[in-house]
């Protein structure tokens, strides 16, 4: 008997949480086509953007079209049709019967995406330790030389980039966790599990989407060049899945890790991670002492005079 549940698959996770790796694995499946990041869903979410003012009226396309005689279910169905049409055509062109979609920054548009897609797709949600995500996002913006809108909003609110990125993680992770709690068609994964035991996690994913696992899938996912496009550039340079990026936050200076922990710990605990130890904030005198010692170390490294 065929599976009557929705066939479309949407990967959702905070940026830098392993979504591109999952995309490559699903795209290597003989029945599933998952293109590089299309931005279809975040674009559709922006189409649904609305403002709500004190009088309670929602000002946006759904209310506007309702006045014109188009009720919300119909508008959402038409929007889904537009999005699914591109993905159906892409899958067909690849000779595959199903599609999957993944764009990392979708996590910041999840309320609108959920409104549009819940009950119509199977979500595969992946979460990663927030301090590792903040470190990796900092590396990403360093490489790209700028902040995308979704992150820039946080930078405007907080002058410390890593702290701003930690806040971005908390909000995105909260959206993803909420989706997992509400949607029975959402699978909940952890990046750390994926890199520690890829086969076990991929088996869960394929069971969730109703496809068989084959022993060559992971090897093919990493060996095949796949389609070029937007996504995490680092995965294209990897020939094997490894856990070398797990716990990278531990290399942060202790005051920085503590500052991020203050932001992230409640969400870390909610997601089942151990909270990060928070050191007492240094006194002004301690902070000056650390700073002076850091300068002295730089002098030593440069081979300059060690004398007073």
């Amino acid at each position: 008997m065929s599976d009557s549940r929705p066939q479309g698959i949407v990967i959702i996770g905070t940026p830098r949480a392993g979504t591109t790796l999952l995309r490559r694995i699903l795209d290597a499946h003989p029945r599933i086509a998952c293109p590089p990041e299309t931005y279809l869903l975040s674009a559709a979410a922006r189409f649904l953007h609305e403002e709500r003012f004190a009088a309670g009226l929602r000002i946006g396309v759904l209310s506007g079209l309702a006045f014109a005689g188009f009720e919300e279910p119909e508008v959402l169905a038409r929007l889904r049709g537009l999005v699914f049409g591109f993905l159906d055509d892409h899958a067909r062109a690849r000779g595959k019967s199903r599609w999957a979609e993944k764009t990392a920054f979708d996590a910041f548009h999840l309320p609108a995406i959920e409104r549009m897609l819940s009950g119509h797709v199977r979500f595969v949600c992946i979460q990663r330790h927030g301090l590792d995500v903040a470190c990796s996002l900092a590396e990403l913006v360093d490489k790209t030389g700028g902040y995308v809108q979704e992150l820039h909003d946080y930078l405007r609110r907080d002058p410390e980039p890593l702290v701003a990125l930690a806040h971005a993680w908390v909000d995105a992770a909260e959206h993803v966790a909420g989706l997992v709690e509400r949607d029975p068609l959402a699978l909940d994964l952890r990046y750390e599990d994926l890199v520690r035991d890829p086969e076990a996690v991929v088996r869960r994913v394929l069971e969730h989407v109703g496809e068989p696992y084959d022993d060559t899938l992971l090897a093919r996912a990493l060996a095949e060049p796949g389609q070029l496009g937007f996504g995490d550039w680092k995965t294209y340079g990897r020939a094997a899945i490894d856990g070398s990026s797990v716990d990278r936050w531990r290399t942060l200076p202790s005051p920085t890790a503590s500052r991020l922990a203050e932001v992230c710990n409640p969400m870390l605990v909610r997601l089942g991670y151990e909270p990060v130890e928070i050191d007492q904030a240094p006194s002004d005198e301690d902070a000056r002492h650390r700073y002076a010692m850091g300068l002295r170390l730089q002098q030593m490294r440069a081979g300059k005079s060690h004398e007073q």
């Binding site: 290399t251 200076p253 202790s254 050191d279 650390r290 010692m293 850091g294 170390l297 730089q298 030593m300 490294r301």
Partner: peptide
């Protein structure tokens, strides 16, 4: 450790703490 580059100045500062 430090003069060989195994640990950098940030780790040294944390070590001092």
């Amino acid at each position: 450790l430090f003069s060989s580059g195994i640990i950098d100045s940030f780790v040294m500062i944390d070590l001092l703490g």
